[in-house]
């Protein structure tokens, strides 16, 4: 009984954070800011949902799969964000107008001018 209450609370919290992540995906201005919201909130929210399922189910075949899911999400989601943001920057997508500095682009120009 108490397991089900804790699990349900965790699942609801996870869904709430997933919702914030999606809201950030819609509201924030450019691809980099959107990725920030998407990786942080969606990783944590999904981990929360899986943890809730683990607590409701206990350590059986279901629960162990949840643990593996949590570990894989934590390992892969930041790597995916890094790959997408790097690819976007290399493809020449500019930062939003509100940005105050882009040292990555400055360094890249420096490198190109020194090799030419």
């Amino acid at each position: 009984m108490i397991n089900e209450i804790i699990g349900t609370v965790l699942i609801c919290a996870g869904i709430a954070f997933d919702f914030f992540g999606v809201l950030g995906l819609v509201r924030l201005p450019d691809v980099y800011n959107r990725l920030q919201a998407a990786t942080k909130c969606v990783t944590f929210g999904t981990a929360g949902i899986l943890l809730g399922v683990l607590i409701i189910q206990g350590f059986n075949a279901f629960g162990i799969k949840c643990i593996i899911g949590i570990i894989f999400i934590f390992l892969t989601s930041p790597v995916g964000a890094h790959a997408i943001s790097r690819a976007a920057h290399r493809a020449g997508i500019k930062l939003t107008r509100e940005s105050i500095v882009d040292i990555y682009a400055e360094d890249k120009e420096l490198k190109e001018s020194s090799t030419n």
Partner: peptide
Amino acid sequence: KANFHVAYIVLHPNLPIKPGIVK
């Protein structure tokens, strides 16, 4: 902490951000 930070930014009506790439 990070999740509450993002939730604060996203729910704020003015989007208080100051983005940039640093080293």
